[in-house]
Nucleic acid binder design. Structure first.
Lengths: 347, 347
DNA sequence: GGCTAGCACTCGAGGAGGTCGAGTGCTAAG
DNA sequence: CTTAGCACTCGACCTCCTCGAGTGCTAGCC
């Protein structure tokens, strides 16, 4: 069954009033804010149609209407006016990114902060992640005669360090020579290729290669388990959180990493900004929340996620604008760091 | 005026009962839990003495007693039985540190998590910080013909990367030669020495040196502004946070960095574990909280802080044990990474 | 002189009852 | 199809009341 234009307008205003105030919206109160040229009784009739179609619901008999998840989805898809961040905001944000250290973790943390600040909800960002992580470059740095620091940089821009204990002392000169020889050979190899190369090599080289492979594994694992979250203070401030129980749920979900291990792997990164409302999140605990989500690109075949998480009653238009803009900013920044050959051609 | 032994025992039991239940403790209820060989009336008399001396207070006329800040301080200093984490816990914790990546940020994050988990409050950890940061080693890695990644490691174990745009293309071979020449010369120099060395050098060298100096500045700044906090979910669960307002205060204080900029710089790192209760924290917003704090060492002249933050009603003995143990574990780990000459002698 | 039994008093928690107002559905008329 | 009118519902909020844990004080006991 099709909605009439007036019903669509009523739905839109109910949703917007609800997002603003957090309270159930009644027919009379609605007409005090917006004029529809009809009486409260007419609005009530349309509201009861909308209720029958599961767009609206009543918390109790004598209360106003509240949008259902279905109603919110319809609003986001068909009724909401999308917007962009103002040019001043965009400038401010770009400026902030120029201020911080030019490295991936700083960018991700800042991106989460900015998402939180501009949307007034929790900002979430995952690290960039390659389908298979490849070595870009490694260096060996002598700390003490038999202790060496291995530093390596990967395709996705991750930097990793680990300590090696040597059987016998080695000078920096020898270490440098080793990395000079091995680097060209290992460039763009993945973990498995490096492991294969390790078997049969002389002991020192084998040690280094095995530790590089191990580091790549660590990095891949970390990329799957790390999540930058900022702005909890905004969400806790919402009236929904008055009993503080929701806040606890939220903290536990974020810490437990259920989003990362369960939800994100099931989504297609190529789809642009999407809005997941309540049960879309497929986690009972997250039922009262919504997530506005987008992927970002960081070189060919390397992507990450970023989004805004808040109560179902969130300012969707604003969150979507923030997510869309940040996605493009982060993608730009990341591809500067990127350096794999395929990607150079694309730019 | 001196407390009698019985008064000290009563104070101890009131504090412990209050820490356990969070409710005001009355004379009769106290005697139901512990036997002191006297009647409630006697306990009441002693309680009123303790109240006159500002160890206890009454929330309202007909309620039991609650310890004051002064009473808590006395308890922590003279009455509390200190303990250690059990050997099993210690083993578990050491095991966890072996599981994660062997690098500073992972350790710090894990330390904050462990503090939170073992104490049931917020765990806080600051990065290690040298009075003046010195260069240990740097490398130049060619990403694209005219874009170079500068990676450097400092005395305190911080790793930093930044991007350099070159005026003209340079091959990896040339870059490696450059770092081979410059590294021995720059080792253990601080920012100002490197800046001095930059003036008058040929353009390419000057560029690199200036960027290294800049990176050191960035790192010093970050060490002053970064704070790892974990375990908010525990604190939010406390009954004190039922109205969710405290949670908001806490989140804002943590994000605002007031602890870092205001409180920590005024403390002496050499003092061992200390307990700051309520107004000791010198921040109005933190009045309802307590902080158990210790420094850790990471090589000569390099120290950081770690601690447990929670409501005044926290399990102090446990928090102190956790902080003390983690301080020693983190100190050990850090000094493995450390490599400055003075420190090698000390070990 | 310290300890205790007894007692009157205080005050918050929590339940019962009552009012108010925002909101609804229904009906009948325009 | 719209609207005015009306009876009805129900949560929010206030007041009143009771209950019980806890106190301080006093007088008597060891």
């Amino acid at each position: 069954m099709q909605l009439t234009e007036r019903q669509r307008q009523i739905l839109r205003h109910v949703v917007e009033e609800y997002l603003r105030s957090g309270r159930a919206v009644g027919s009379k109160a609605l007409l005090e804010r917006v004029s529809l040229g009809v009486s409260p009784a007419t609005v009530r009739n349309d509201m009861s149609v909308l209720e029958a179609l599961d767009f609206l619901t009543q918390p109790h008999t004598s209360a106003g209407r509240v949008p259902t998840e279905h109603g919110l989805r319809y609003y986001v898809q068909y009724l909401m006016e999308e917007g962009e961040l103002t040019p001043e905001e965009q400038l401010m944000i770009r400026h902030q990114f120029r201020q911080v250290e030019q490295q991936v973790p700083s960018w991700l943390k800042l991106a989460a902060s900015v998402l939180a600040d501009t949307s007034g909800n929790v900002g979430l960002v995952t690290p960039p992640r390659a389908r298979v992580e490849r070595l870009r470059h490694f260096e060996l740095i002598s700390l003490r005669p038999r202790v060496v620091l291995l530093v390596l940089v990967t395709q996705s821009g991750a930097i990793h360090q680990s300590l090696l204990d040597l059987a016998e002392p080695l000078e920096q000169e020898r270490l440098s020579a080793l990395s000079r020889v091995l680097n060209p050979e290992l460039r763009w190899l993945d973990r498995q290729a490096i492991e294969r190369r390790a078997s049969g090599a002389e002991p020192l080289v084998a040690l280094v290669l095995r530790r590089i492979a191990e580091a790549l594994r660590f990095i891949e694992q970390q990329q799957r388990s790390e999540l930058y979250a900022e702005g909890l203070e905004y969400v806790v401030r919402q009236p929904e959180f008055a009993q503080a129980q929701l806040a606890q749920v939220l903290l536990e979900v974020l810490r437990g990493g259920m989003l990362l291990t369960w939800l994100l792997p099931r989504l297609d990164p190529s789809e642009g900004v999407r809005v997941l409302i309540g049960s879309d999140l497929a986690l009972r605990e997250l039922r009262p929340f919504s997530l506005v989500l987008s992927s970002y690109r960081s070189g060919a075949d390397v992507t990450g996620w970023l989004g805004v998480l808040g109560p179902q009653r969130m300012a969707y238009a604003r969150a979507i604008a923030a997510v869309r803009f940040l996605s493009s900013v982060v993608s730009e920044l990341m591809s500067e760091l990127s350096g794999e050959p395929e990607w150079e051609g694309v730019r």
